[in-house]
Structures are given as structure tokens and as C-alpha cells.
Design a protein around this nucleic acid. Sequence first.
RNA 1: GGCCCCAUCGUCUAGAGGCCUAGGACACCGGCUUUUCACGCCGGCAACGCGGGUUCGAAUCCCGCUGGGGUCACCA
Length: 491
Amino acid sequence: MNDAQALRVRFAPSPTGYLHVGGARTALFNWLLARKAGGRFIVRIEDTDTDRNVEGAIPKIIEDLRWLGLNWDEGIEVGGPHAPYLQSQRLDLYRAAVTKLLETGQAYYAFDTSAELEAMREQAMAEKRNFRYPRPERFPDESDMQQARAAGKPVVVRFKMPGEDITVHDEVMGQVTIKADELDDFIIVKADGMPTYHLANVTDDGEMQINFVVRGQEFLAQTPRHIALQRALGYPTPRYAHLPLIMDMKGRKLSKRDGDVEVFSFRQAGYLPETLVNFIALLGWSPGMQREQFSLSEIVEVFDTARVNRANAKFDRDKLLAFNTDYCASLGEDRLLEAFTDWLSINPDSSLAKANLDESSRRTLLHVNKGFRLFPDIEKKSGFIYLPDEAIEYDPQAVKKVLAKNDGEGFAMLRMLLPQIEATAPWTHETLEALIANVCQSHGAGMNKVAQPIRVAVAGTTVSPAIYDTLVMLGKEKTLNRIRRALATVQ
RNA sequence: GGCCCCAUCGUCUAGAGGCCUAGGACACCGGCUUUUCACGCCGGCAACGCGGGUUCGAAUCCCGCUGGGGUCACCA
């Protein structure tokens, strides 16, 4: 494959907020296509809306993409032959394009105020017809423009649509033709002088030689405008693939405000990037086999736009959670440790993060919590271990059920156990197991009667890792302290 | 409302005219396992939106209806 034919795709987020799962999926599909074809994946930032740009959004988006494992060959931060990759730094390019369009009569100045446009739209709506911007008989010239500007009117530039039906050959949606009378003259330069999305996007795709545009279906209706613009500007029309949308469980388009759909919030909630990427790949695409666990590199091998669905998909968190459970169980220990460490670093308020665990403790935690679904499960189940002894709070339900019931049967067990625990040495899984087995036998009691009172005494609740693991991690001294404290303070 | 797109279990989906008594996964419901909680294992419930065609035969093709979504910005 020579350079001219090499696949060039891009992900072009605007820095209006953090990366959410919809954007992540678009990025993923583009990345997949590039990796599969040996092409280039480009990340460009579309920040032409000065009002909506959010401070700090760009580094967050970059961080989220990296966390997902989607690296790019050209673009923001990494640079490349078409730098800069930030639209606000490419204004000369758009200006040149507009000048060309204006000079060739393919664009014209317009001076309507928002209120005037609004009124025209309302009237069209009232008359039940589609609003189309009324193109003037004669296009205003430079002096008209200067005059309008002097008079304080807003000056925008509109693109003159060619007035013909335009067909999009979409690799997911098929052929979609939009009639000429559905397409009116749209704005390409705003009153503040900034290009609109349409102009900047088409210009950049052209300049950066993007030859395959993969984006959400909400852009399908805009594509004929882009195609018209490409023709006017002399850029080839790229291949197109419009992806079905991701909806929330109520069936509405996933929106940033609608709960925690941001990539970062999943990271913070203890999901693995492997989970998110795998799950998101399956939203609108299927490998066509009865298997759904795929690593990124496995998906690269089998991915194909021909297998992309046309129907919108709902984002089901239950299934995502199940996916994460599977990944937590199947990923290698080192990878899990890495992800767990990352989770601790972005959750500094958790008691586990505060405990400043060394690597071996983190590994142990991972090991004794096998079967966990999310990293916070480890926190919930084992966080008590690293609390100061005095900070253990006793759950009344647990106390009642395990210690107080049957005339304080549990308390009695603890009192009986205390000297034996004091005598236990060395403090290992084996010696503890021998101790408890011995007590069970001599008292004719089940494990429950022995392990649960200890658990409640040291953890305050009925939930903890396996009792021997728990005690070994706690250490003899803390175990004894907590049992004594439970006997002294809990009734 | 105009235009465009879509339509298989509650959800993600397999299915490209006979292999479908419609498969898998999640969720849900039983059971098993078990020192707690999880995990795991086994089983069960559960769908081709409706109506017309085409065909020997339709979840699969065509039309209509209904339903859902997107879009009609000086947002992307």
C-alpha cells in the first residue's frame, strides 16, 4: 500500500467537556480501522466555539484516550505533518478557504440578526413548511459588508448550496440521498469571525487527507453539506461510515449530563479500561461469533465496518459490570496490580489509598479478594484492616446476630478464644487454621460459630475476606486488640 | 411538523429464504457450592411490533402501518 492509499482516519472531539462513552466508541472504531489497515489515526481538537470550550478539557480527553489504550499517530500533543492539530491555531487556513469561496461566488455575506432568523423559522414552522434561508438575488459585496458592519449588524458568511440532490454512500447506512430543497445555504463563518464546524471540519479533513470519516449517526444529515463544501473547495470526498447512536436505558441519546457516562467516571468507579473498550466495541458491532471477550488486539483482527449495526444501542450498566467481573478474574496478576494501583492513585480518599500500601500488600489484597467486581469492592471488603483499631464501628445488625444472640454466645466464644489466640505462634494461615479447627472440634461447633464472631470483632461487620487471610493481614496484635475492644465496648 | 435512519428476549446481539422447536451473553428466578460477602457451577423464564404481499417455504425479500431515534443553530 503506498502512501496515497493509506487509510487516514481521525477522531475530532471538541473540548466542551470530558470524553464520554459515545465519543470513546467513535474514537475506538476509528482506531480499530487504522490499526487493522496499517493506516494512520489522527486526533484533532475542534475548538471553534469559543463560548463552549471548557478549560482543562483537552488534557482530560487526552488522558482518557490514553487510559483506554487508544494511541494516535498524528495529532494533538504528538504532532505530525499537518500540525497544528488545534483548530483555533489553524484560522488562516479557513480564512483562505472562505476567501476562495467568496471570490468564486460560492459563498456570500449575510447580515441577519439571530432574532430575524428566529422569526423566519417560527413563521415557517407556523406555516408547516421547512425553513430554508432565503438566498438574496444579488450577493452583497465588500462595501455592503463594510456598511453593515459599520451599522453594527452581524456579519456572517453563508455557503451557496449547489442546488442538487446529494447522495451519501455510507458504509454502514447504505445510500442516503438528500433532496436539494432540503439543503439551504448554511453559515460557514460566524459573526465573531470563527469558522463553523462545517467549514473547519471539511477544510481540515481535506488538508489532513482524511479518507475515511467514521462518526456518529447524528452527523449523517449534515454530510451532504460537507460533500458540497468539499466539491467547492476541491477536496475529494472521503468514504463515510455513520455509527448508530448509544442511548441511555430510557432510550434517549446519551448525554453528558445524564449520569456518569464519562470515561473518567468509570475509571474512578473502578472499571478496567479492558472492560470499557471491549464493552463499547460491542455496542453497535458484533464479531458474529458466540464469544464476547476480546482484547483490543483481538478486536483489531476481526473488526469490520460491514458488521456494524444500523440500530441504536442502549448502554446497559449491568452487563458492563459483569464484563468487569470477568476481566478482574481473568487478567494477569501484574496487569491487575497496575490497574489497582491506578485506581488507588485517583481515589486518594479511600482508606486503602490512605494506608499507602506497598506492592506486596496490594498483591495480597488482590489475591484475598478474588471474585471482586470493581476495585471499590476491595475497599468495602478489606478497608477495615487498615483502619486504626479504635475506628472500627460495630454494625448493630452484625453484633446482634453473631455476638449477642443466644445469651451472648458469640461473646462467650471470643472470651474462650482469646487466650488461645494469644498463645498462637507463629502467626500464619496454618497455625490459625489449626487453632480454629481445633476449637470447632472440641466444642462440636461449625466454622460459623467460630469464624463469624472473630470476623465481627475485627471488622465490625459480617463481611471480610476469608478469616485466616484477614487475621494474617491484620497481625496478631491488632487481632487481639480488636477482640478485647469488642468484648469491652460492645453489648 | 418536514426530512433522514432504524425495528429479534427487559438489555447487547447471532441470524444474510429452508440448518430456527430462533442461538449466545447480561439481568431476573430457582438450585448447588461455601467459614461471611462475593465468585463459580447447573437449570429455568424470556423475542422475530402489526397488516398485507412475493415464494413450495420468510425473522430473513417488497409495500403499508405503528413505534423509536436523529436532524432541521452564528453547537459540534
